[in-house]
């Protein structure tokens, strides 16, 4: 029964083959219970959509992951705000530090035009997906893959959280995994006093560093990472 209902759930989402679609229709025709379930799926979708209309998507996503990673959760909220207002979005040049002219042009246009702002926001959807993925990840962001060379001078590992590094004033967190974003250059986002650095590594992985560490402090770290 559960497997049948799982098929109806996928059918509802349109994620079925032609054969499954046809058998789903037959099932719906034969069973009042299945019809009721389909109606309830639709009802639930409507409730979700209604809620989404009355609050921002980022806020909702943040609400769904309470306490899981409060630091990153707060940064994402702030980053989304920044993306909307387009306060700043830089891409480092091939020397791994500096400002990409093309992005500055984009930024200038975006500040002038709501359409361009929207396009710029969409362009970074994959980055937001990546951050949501990190926030939703249950895997501890252990320090075993973090090279000591990457840690900025003066920063020490927290005893409570091995992924957190602090110099007493500023905090920095690391997450490392395969580079699915296919980034070739370092990207960073500023959100009020927080920054997210996406740093492609030479071995094909992606280092995500986030915290209240400004570029001036992070630049040596970024340049040291190969």
């Amino acid at each position: 029964m559960t497997k049948e209902m799982e098929k109806i759930s996928a059918w509802y989402d349109g994620e079925v083959t032609q054969q499954e679609f046809d058998s789903g229709l037959d099932e719906l025709n034969a069973s009042a219970e299945t019809k009721k379930t389909l109606h309830q799926f639709a009802l639930l979708s409507e409730v979700m959509q209604r809620q989404q209309k009355s609050s921002s998507k980022v806020q909702m996503i943040k609400d769904y992951f309470p306490g899981n990673n409060p630091w990153l959760s707060n940064i994402i909220t702030a980053a989304a705000t920044v993306l909307v207002t387009i306060t700043i979005l830089y891409q480092f040049d091939t020397n791994r530090f500096g400002v990409d002219d093309e992005n500055q042009m984009q930024l200038a246009t975006a500040l002038e035009s709501p359409e361009a702002r929207s396009q710029l926001l969409s362009a970074d959807q994959n980055v937001m997906d990546h951050l949501i993925h990190i926030m939703a990840s249950n895997q501890p962001h252990g320090s075993q893959n973090i090279s000591q060379d990457w840690i900025p001078v003066g920063f020490k590992q927290s005893q409570q959280n091995p992924a957190q590094f602090s110099n007493g004033r500023n905090n920095l967190f690391f997450h490392i995994e395969n580079n699915k974003l296919n980034l070739t250059k370092v990207k960073y986002f500023q959100a009020s006093n927080s920054w997210i650095y996406l740093i492609p590594l030479g071995d094909g992985r992606l280092l995500t560093a986030y915290g209240d560490v400004p570029p001036a402090l992070a630049s040596k770290m970024i340049q040291a990472i190969k």
Partner: peptide
């Protein structure tokens, strides 16, 4: 797939579409 079935006059598909989009 749903639309093709409805275009072909399949009332079951139509009914399913109504259930799906009505709320």
């Amino acid at each position: 797939m749903m639309v093709e079935q409805i275009k072909a006059g399949n009332t079951k598909a139509f009914e399913a579409m109504v259930i799906q989009h009505q709320p």
